[in-house]
């Protein structure tokens, strides 16, 4: 199974731009399926990006974030070749993580 996280991080001058796409249903718990049954809430609660043991981006998410979320941010203090660690946990206790090399 391929990772649920796709990351691209590029250092440009002093800042590193990070883009990520995460595969997750992000069910709100308010939608019914074809049989009329509520689809239980299932969403990412926390998403973090770590660089050199330091959290550079931390997001507390809820059901309002769309399916297969995409995000983009930039931070200072990283160089090309550094490693970025990305992980999420959801409200059902599932999690996934991956690492990406800053290009």
């Amino acid at each position: 199974m391929a990772s649920s996280i796709r990351v691209r991080a590029t250092a440009n001058g002093g800042t590193t731009e990070v883009q990520a796409l995460i595969q997750h249903p992000m069910d709100t718990g308010l939608v019914k399926d074809a049989q009329g049954q509520l689809i239980p809430a299932h969403f990412i609660q926390q998403l973090s990006f770590e660089h050199g043991g330091k959290t550079v981006f931390l997001a507390d998410w809820g059901p309002a974030v769309a399916k297969d979320p995409y995000l983009k941010f930039s931070f200072k203090g990283a160089a090309k070749g550094d490693e970025l660690k990305i992980g999420w946990t959801d409200n059902k206790g599932a999690s996934d993580s991956t690492t990406a090399r800053i290009g």
């Binding site: 391929a2 796709r6 691209r8 883009q19 796409l21 297969d68 983009k72």
Partner: peptide, 12 residues
Amino acid sequence: EEFPPYQFALDA
């Protein structure tokens, strides 16, 4: 398109 939403489908 820099990070297209069909990426997962493409990989699958």
